[in-house]
Amino acid sequence: MLNVKSNLISIERAFDLSALLKTVPSELSSVIFEEFVFRVFIFSSLFYFTRKKAAALVLTALLFSFAHFPDNYLEVLSYFLGGIMYGYAFLKFQTVWVPIAIHFFWNFIQGPVLGFPVSGMEQEGLLKLEIVPDMFFNGGDQGPEGSILGILLRLVIILTIYLIPRVSENHGFLKFKENT
């Protein structure tokens, strides 16, 4: 709302349910692909070689950030925090499905629902926006995830993940067979 009142965003059209529903398969498949690559393959491999969860988390978050081709330090920080957010959820809940859900809803609400770009890619959504680039409020061509507000929201989500209790322990999580 602040973006609209500040004339940084104008809404051209609202509510196109068919556009929203058409995006679900592609949004979900891209998120599943990214999470399996970054959490299951890269994070698990780094952890296997370092045996340090914090190091694997930070390195994976850096790779996640640079894989999104950030244009400035604000975007590097935002995508890095995104990598921390998804990686921490992976560690805390000991499954890839929680970061997949968080990542899907992050992208889906930002793009197909609100009509902002997601990771620099234009989106068709319920709202059709005309965006005046503003790195503080709306992230310009990266969408809200490239803004200060997006960074603050990622920090709130990381804190929320921290505060939610883990339901059960997965004793097989990140356990590797020893080579004999």
Rank of each mutant, 00 (worst) to 15 (best):
I164L: 05
S78W: 02
F80C: 07
V96F: 05
N107R: 08
A54V: 10
L28R: 02
V98W: 08
L163N: 05
F108D: 05
L8A: 10
V31M: 03
H171Q: 08
A14D: 12
F173C: 13
K5I: 08
R154G: 08
P117W: 05
E178M: 09
I32Y: 08
Y86W: 08
A14Y: 13
L153V: 10
Q123H: 15
S29C: 04
Q94P: 12
F66T: 05
D71R: 07
R154W: 10
V156M: 04
L74Q: 10
K53F: 04
W97H: 11
A54P: 03
I84L: 09
I158K: 10
F38P: 03
G87A: 11
F137D: 00
Y48D: 15
Q123T: 15
P99H: 06
K92Y: 10
L20V: 07
Q110C: 09
K177Q: 11
L62S: 13
Y86A: 07
V4I: 05
L17A: 09
E145L: 00
L127N: 05
F66M: 03
S29I: 09
N179Y: 11
I102P: 02
S168Q: 12
V4M: 01
L63P: 04
F33M: 12
F176S: 01
S18W: 04
Q123M: 14
V4D: 03
H68G: 01
L153W: 09
L155F: 12
E145K: 04
S147Y: 01
T50Q: 14
E130I: 15
F15C: 07
N72Y: 08
F173W: 13
K92L: 14
Y162M: 09
V4F: 04
K52A: 07
D71S: 14
K92F: 12
I157D: 02
L155S: 06
G143I: 00
Y162V: 10
D16G: 04
S119R: 04
E35M: 10
F66P: 03
V37Y: 15
P70G: 09
I11V: 14
N138G: 07
G140S: 06
G120D: 01
Q142R: 00
E178Y: 10
Y86H: 07
L155W: 11
Q142T: 00
I158L: 10
Y73P: 12
P117C: 03
S18A: 06
I42R: 00
L129H: 14
L28M: 02
L152H: 06
S45R: 12
V76N: 08
N72W: 07
L21F: 13
W97I: 13
T23M: 14
L91G: 11
R13T: 12
L62I: 15
E75H: 05
